[in-house]
């Protein structure tokens, strides 16, 4: 293993006095940076750095057929690649359960928040725009969910909308933006012992027994996902929902800043 790890005993010892191995408070995010438009061939793109975790999201928009149960809406598809270059733990091959869960949790937040205006993607009978989000994990150091969700939302909010001229898809030039509503973000907590830690780094994540992701926008909780084999109390969950509502303010403004730049 190439990643240097701090022992569980030391992590626990620090946690007794609410300290973390990188000096953060329990409910602090690591340094966050969001850059949009980094891959201009894609209709939308963003790079998120959360500490040493780096996730790139690319948005492509193509023409396809609508889902059978939603004939007058476009389609949204979210994929995730845990690139083998991102960690010695990742291997090339078919999607792992971890990457599938990651993509689905991010997708669920975006979908439930109705962030993409799906009706605006309708072209004509049997012909709609399909929005593909692909998250590429470039370096994995914990909390992919929040980083991936920030990258996906920033990429969607900065995406240009291709247009049809006859049968030809026009992807560059003077284009409108993809129609979106609001901003959804997530806060993911790891539980180590009886402590709840926001934004666990890769080292902390190894010792977390339980994980909870809460995705919300300004008004509502939009998605939640408990992960790992441990458990948590209802009181703890309520606490994390409140923290998420509070912390999401700074995440939303970080996205706004990145999209406006």
């Amino acid at each position: 293993m190439l990643i240097k790890t701090v022992s569980k005993e030391y992590v626990n010892e620090l946690l007794l006095s609410d300290k973390r191995i990188d000096g953060r408070g329990l409910l602090d995010f690591r340094k966050l940076s969001i850059k949009t438009g980094i891959m201009p061939h894609a209709e939308g793109s963003a790079l998120v750095e959360l500490g040493n975790t780096r996730v790139i999201a690319g948005v492509k928009i193509d023409i396809g057929e609508p889902l059978r149960d939603k004939p007058d809406e476009g389609a949204l598809m979210t994929g995730a690649e845990l690139l083998p270059m991102a960690s010695p733990k990742y291997e090339a091959g078919p999607p792992s359960p971890e990457s599938v869960e990651f993509a689905r949790v991010v997708d669920r937040g975006i979908r439930s928040a109705e962030l993409v205006d799906m009706q605006s993607l309708f072209i004509e009978k049997e012909k709609v725009w399909m929005v593909f989000i692909d998250m590429y994990v470039m370096n994995a150091d914990g909390n992919l969910f929040d980083a991936g969700s920030l990258a996906s939302v920033a990429a969607l909010l900065s995406a240009r909308m291709p247009k049809l001229e006859g049968e030809e898809i026009i992807r560059t030039g003077n284009l409108h933006k993809l129609k979106t509503n609001g901003i959804v973000t997530s806060c993911t907590f790891g539980k180590i012992g009886d402590k709840l830690l926001l934004d666990t780094n890769g080292n902390e994540e190894e010792y977390a027994s339980t994980r909870l992701t809460v995705a919300n926008d300004e008004k509502y909780i939009r998605a939640m996902q408990k992960g790992l084999s441990g458990d948590m109390s209802i009181k703890e969950i309520q606490e994390m929902i409140d923290i998420s509502a509070d912390k999401s303010k700074e995440l939303r403004s970080a996205i706004k800043r990145a999209v406006e730049e």
């Binding site: 891959m39 061939h41 894609a42 793109s45 790139i56 690319g58 948005v59 492509k60 928009i61 193509d62 994929g79 690649e81 083998p84 090339a92 078919p94 399909m130 593909f132 692909d134 590429y136 898809i169 992807r171 560059t172």
Partner: peptide, 18 residues
């Protein structure tokens, strides 16, 4: 060695990864 292209890498349609 693994060489791979991202599905969003081209100015054209969404590519298949893998």
């Amino acid at each position: 060695c693994r060489y791979s292209m991202a599905p969003f890498s081209s100015l054209e349609e969404h590519g298949r990864s893998g």
